[in-house]
Design a protein around this nucleic acid. Structure first.
Lengths: 205, 205
DNA sequence: GTCTATACCACGATAGAC
DNA sequence: GTCTATCGTGGTATAGAC
């Protein structure tokens, strides 16, 4: 059973979230940067400005904390996909695809470290955490598979390339950016266009 | 100072390497699977068939063990690049590129878990380990950058795409495969051709 | 809701017998 | 070259005061 969460998602006037929300933000950043196992609760608490024991008022365990972060990361991705879908429902297939690529990348960089932490820590997350989020993760991947299938049925995606393979290499290109893309220095739109361009026509001169 | 390494790289007749070599193999697999921090020396020792303390005869510390593994992974990649280069020195640019993609992927899957472990654990490796291998890592990346530059000078790679970006998305596609590619079930050659095809012409119908 | 204090355990690492 | 035994540290987690 979960702890009672007082004032969930409330923002303080003094600039920045408090309590549970702030723990999530800080922990997601640290998990992203150092990895789950290498980040101690003492570090998280210290960065938040409290003591390690106090974290247990908000989360039952370190695993549950990670689970909440990865869950939110997945929620953001799914929501981004839905918005892209709604915004381009009647557009031509390539416009739809471009919007989804843009949405995926935006979710990786514009919604805090949750999504990026999902990409980097899912691999080595404890089994209980993986089991808790794998269902939604599979659902998100299925959305992309379905999108690609539609593109193939529309005749814009080559029909001799396995859809699963296309999705995996596309995800590889997009998700690897969490290791190097710096949105202070690079333009997200240009990056999204580059990914889209590579997917359709490649980089041939 | 390093421990003396008796019989380095020797293979026993009884099937499989012994001593130091066997520790490296086992540790690389476990680091790849669970991550560096989450893998204990006791686990490694147990999988090798010895006790934790005995590992210190072969390696000065856990960090040094990881460093040796990542170093070897990088060595394999560099060697694979060199072989591809030598084999296609007089070939046309696209054949050269295809050979390098094939060599990179082959190195990820045909030379034990060293290269794959490099991909997955470098991100969160301790600073001392990163510093020890970052030079060779940078050199490997520079080889690819130089290759892409030559392709652009040859007029086969579009000149309006930043070379660094092309390399990063390409690496993203290739390296993400350590998370899902199973060479028991998939054909490495087909995968390599798919990556090459995506890079040049994309998946447009 | 956060604190102090602490239990309990697993970890990396060392020493010395064999 | 591997063992046993152990040290010291730092981890997660809990209990109870405030």
């Amino acid at each position: 059973m979960a702890s009672p969460s007082p004032n969930p998602d409330r923002l303080e006037a003094s600039g920045g979230p408090e309590g549970r929300q702030r723990i999530l933000d800080v922990a997601a950043s640290l998990f992203l940067e150092r990895g789950y196992k290498a980040t101690s609760l003492r570090e998280i608490a210290s960065a938040v400005g409290m003591k390690a024991g106090s974290l247990y008022y908000h989360f039952a365990s370190k695993e549950v904390l990670l689970q909440a972060i990865l869950q939110r990361g997945m929620d953001v991705m799914v929501e981004a996909f839905g918005e892209a879908e709604a915004a381009t429902r009647d557009a031509d297939p390539r416009t739809r695809f471009a919007a989804h690529v843009r949405a995926h990348l935006a979710a990786l960089f514009e919604y805090g470290p949750y999504t990026a932490a999902h990409v980097t820590t899912f691999r080595t997350a404890p089994p209980s955490v993986c089991e808790a989020i794998v269902r939604e993760r599979d659902a998100y991947e299925a959305m992309w598979t379905e999108l690609l299938r539609e593109l193939r049925d529309d005749g814009v995606l080559a029909d001799d390339i396995p859809i699963g393979l296309a999705r995996l290499t596309l995800f590889g290109s997009m998700n690897s950016s969490v290791d190097w893309f710096d949105r202070e220095r690079g333009e997200l739109d240009f990056f999204a266009e580059t990914i889209t361009r590579q997917f359709w026509t490649g980089f041939s001169a």
